[in-house]
Design a protein around this nucleic acid. Sequence first.
DNA 1: CTATATTGCGCAACCGATTACATTCAATTT
DNA 2: AAATTGAATGTAATCGGTTGCGCAATATAG
Lengths: 352, 352
Amino acid sequence: MNKRKKATIHDIASKLGITASTVSRALNNHPRISDATKKLVTKAAKDINYQPNNIAAALRNGKSRLIGIIVPTVNRNFFSSVVRGIEEIANQLNYKVIISQSYENFEQEVQIVDTLLSARVDGIIMSISKNTENFEHLDRVKEKNIPLVLFDRITDSVEVNQVVIDDYMGAYKTVEHLIANGYKRIAHFTNPRKINIYSERMRGYIDALKAHGMEYDQNLVIESNMQLEDGQQCVKTMLDQGLEFDAIFSSSDYAAMGALQALKERGIAIPAQVGLAGFGNEPFTSFTTPSLTSVDQVSIPMGNVAAELFFELLKADPKKYVPQKTVLKPDLIIRESSTRTPSKPNSTPNSK
Amino acid sequence: MNKRKKATIHDIASKLGITASTVSRALNNHPRISDATKKLVTKAAKDINYQPNNIAAALRNGKSRLIGIIVPTVNRNFFSSVVRGIEEIANQLNYKVIISQSYENFEQEVQIVDTLLSARVDGIIMSISKNTENFEHLDRVKEKNIPLVLFDRITDSVEVNQVVIDDYMGAYKTVEHLIANGYKRIAHFTNPRKINIYSERMRGYIDALKAHGMEYDQNLVIESNMQLEDGQQCVKTMLDQGLEFDAIFSSSDYAAMGALQALKERGIAIPAQVGLAGFGNEPFTSFTTPSLTSVDQVSIPMGNVAAELFFELLKADPKKYVPQKTVLKPDLIIRESSTRTPSKPNSTPNSK
DNA sequence: CTATATTGCGCAACCGATTACATTCAATTT
DNA sequence: AAATTGAATGTAATCGGTTGCGCAATATAG
């Protein structure tokens, strides 16, 4: 009998000869309920294996205590770490998280937004897909006054809270480091889709070159989809075309990894002949030979900040709240792939 | 005005001078509603930016079309791929997924189960935490007749649907492969917690040795927590203690990676002097030097199967449904770390 | 010893969609 | 022309908590 129907507060109530409202208040520790009945109620609840129905509460309250998270994929250290950072804060406040993956697919992303809105999440924290160029779905979220926070992959076409790292500075520091290690012709791998992160990194690359009196050569900027295979292919093409370069700064660790493999395959010594640096500090970067210099995106703190902004927004009056943009400082993690004996620049020909 | 309150079917109804029930039926494409009104309703819905309230529907229907997924962490290729496999099937059937992470923490796991039950998910698909030894929370799920499917990290103390790979066979084939490459003293890294996956792999290890007339030496079985650092430490200890071995079969890719680093650090050639194989086929295994032989856990198919079992269970009569256990065949991915010139066994003395 | 507060709990409406059971009206049958 | 049928929609209860308001009983004040 109690197999099919789940226990409700009404069951508890009739068992104790009181009303459901009293049970509800008792369970919620309402001050106007005596300790005696509170004890009775909690005991009865345990006895009949009562499980609160959050659906009912959510319907009545208009809030579900759920945060929707949308990421391109969870199968990337960066994203899963941000999620963890969000969860840390959310769990403390007794909020739960629904994670959804867009798989870099725009239609999917739009669909997920609708699903989350229908699921009546209290808000959304997301990083947009690479292929998203239309932001009406985000507008719809804003129109409904649902709190929205963007991180890492952001857009300025919607006024919302944003958390990013200083991609510009990350790139700048990396290139500066390469220059300090004596590299003269630094190539740059980037993505043709000019979402914020890639364009910022490219700005940093260019400015760092200029700041050190090096010319910016368009031929050294190689566009691709930035996956492992792309990195391999780019290097091969560069070598086959006789392009002169002695370092690569890749906006993606995966492409950097591909570059590393291709260079090794062609017998080019890293870091002696060619220096290499990636972006993202994926865990495998410390496993490669040589280990890969990369930029750490402080993912957990980013998740923390995103969640904090979210809750700020949740409490605020949407009319007078002005969206904020938080910029975190990335860390350059220097490893073997870019470290040459301090002042032995020009040690490798190739460029000359 | 429509800023604060979200649109409901009642708003649509009064706008059109009909009732909410008609609107509901129109939106659900009920056959008894005329095409004319259906068109009117869908148009009006679009006009006022109506978003169905799944919470209300879920309350009324008793089903949320949500599946709860619990994994130790999503930041592991295996788990995130299984999730993807589940999503593939679930999305086709218009079900959504709530992903939660236990972070290998028992209390957290119990808490998540309660939260999901309260959120009234239609069922749960999970892989239990390493530290879970008490399964009452799973019993509670079963008692409530909530569909439950376990994958990879399972337990036999609860009668539920299970999906696993044949860990025994994966290990057996790996060890056989090592033997075929001439390795004679094969060590095994395992976890002291004897959850199914580790004990099965160990059985496979032992049986493969015996089947090839090699003695099983307890000293060659090393227990640790199987993280990167543990792998490093184990190898160092083995070397320092003068333990004779010429191959390592690790139940974890991470520990195998640590072993690889430690061996290289000590100047031991892989695979020439020591062969190495891991388990899990984490992406980084193909990035290392030498690349790491490992066992692929067919994660996406595992997710597919788990989801299929789930929906089977969802439709079935809980009284007469008998739980099933599906066993998938893993793939041994042979890479450099275990491949020596075919028949040149004993080429390396090892200990000295 | 009244008058006012406070405590403890019940009443009933409500959240938004769904659906079994009418009801209406026109078309079809007899 | 009355009766039957069926199409199209309305009525109202329901899912399970939550909460403003009210009322009785007890406590405190004056």
